[in-house]
Structures are given as structure tokens and as C-alpha cells.
């Protein structure tokens, strides 16, 4: 690069000092109509529900007001199974700070996209298994519920490989 396009500020001695700032914001997210109903069912009855699009019949989890594909409103609630199939999976080895705790998330952990029986879309969740050789796309898994359910997605502790 030419002398002319050299940044006058660049390269000069400015190493060392870095000014810290902690971004720290507490939120109170509204769960809204769809998530409230879903998590209530999960907590009270240990059941998983989605919503069906009356147009294309897709069953959506997470439930939502609109089917983007049909550009129309969703309709009835339908129950789906607590078993499903791995659509994609990995074992995370990379350390990073969990934004919700401000601390490093323990590694390794199994992580997958899982399509529950009866659903058209898939959910993110943890896998019990952390050996990538034992995991695989297409393998069947089952939700392992926690003994005490609070009404969050973590009421399902993780998914366990079947067979």
C-alpha cells in the first residue's frame, strides 16, 4: 500500500492499555402466548406440543403465530412425541463464555438438532452422549426429563440415544 493510503494512526506504539467494560444487562423476556402454553404443558404434564399450519399441515416446534412458508396463521395445537431423530449433531470442545452465566460453559458437551416424532421442524438440545463416534445423523433419541420441572426447555435434561 502506498504512503498516501497508510493510516496515520496505525502501527504506532499503542499496545498494552485496554479499557475494560462489562456489558451486563438483565432482561425480562415475555414468553408470549405460544411459548407460555408450550412450557406450561411441559411443566405440568411433561408433554410436548406444537402447532399445525392449516395450509401445509406442518407441525411447528417452537410453536409460532405464522407459518412462514404459507404466509398464513397457524392453527390447532397437536401433541408430539418425546422421541425423535437426530437431524444434526456435534460434540462441542471449544471453550466459550456462556452469556447467561458470564462463565465458561463446561466442555465437552453433546449438542444436536432433534426432530421429534410428529413434528416438522427440529429443536436444539443437549445430548447425553459425548463420544462423536457413537453419535450420528438419523439415530433415534428420547427425552430424559428432570424429576422437577420448572417450565423451561431444560425440564428436558438431555436426549438419550435409543438402542
Amino acid at each position: 500500500m502506498s504512503e498516501k493510503t497508510k493510516n496515520p494512526a496505525a502501527g504506532k506504539k499503542a499496545e498494552g492499555l485496554r479499557v475494560p467494560w462489562l456489558l451486563s444487562v438483565e432482561y425480562e423476556y415475555a414468553a408470549g402466548h405460544f411459548a407460555t402454553r408450550f412450557f406450561q404443558e411441559l411443566r405440568d404434564n411433561g408433554r410436548i406440543w406444537g402447532v399445525r399450519c392449516p395450509g401445509c399441515q406442518r407441525v411447528y416446534i417452537p410453536p409460532r403465530p405464522v407459518c412462514g412458508i404459507c404466509a398464513g396463521k397457524t392453527g390447532e395445537w397437536v401433541e408430539v412425541g418425546d422421541e425423535g431423530v437426530i437431524v444434526g449433531c456435534t460434540v462441542v470442545n471449544v471453550p466459550f463464555i456462556d452469556p447467561m452465566t458470564g462463565e465458561q460453559r463446561p466442555i465437552p458437551y453433546g449438542f444436536a438438532i432433534i426432530r421429534l416424532d410428529g413434528a416438522s421442524t427440529a429443536l436444539y438440545h443437549f445430548l447425553e452422549e459425548t463420544d462423536p463416534k457413537k453419535l450420528g445423523v438419523g439415530k433415534r433419541v428420547k427425552a430424559v426429563f428432570r424429576p422437577e420441572r420448572k417450565g423451561t426447555l431444560l425440564d428436558i435434561k438431555h436426549f438419550r440415544l435409543l438402542d
Binding site: Y27, Y29, A31, A35, F39, P62, V87, G88, C89, T90, V92, V94, F96, P99, M100, R105, Y109, F111, A112, I113, L123, Y124, H125, F126, V137, T152, L153, L154
Partner: peptide, 22 residues
């Protein structure tokens, strides 16, 4: 999404890896 995805998300790398596996 704070209710549906954040607890499990693993930055860009973990997310990308699950897609790559498919």
C-alpha cells in the same frame, strides 16, 4: 432465541458443526 435456543447454543462453531454433520 432466549427461550428456545440460547441455553444450548454454542457460538458459531457448535451451531455450524451440527449443520455440517447433516
Amino acid at each position: 432465541d432466549p427461550l428456545w435456543e440460547r441455553t444450548m447454543m454454542a457460538g458459531a462453531i457448535g451451531n455450524f458443526a451440527v449443520m455440517a454433520s447433516t
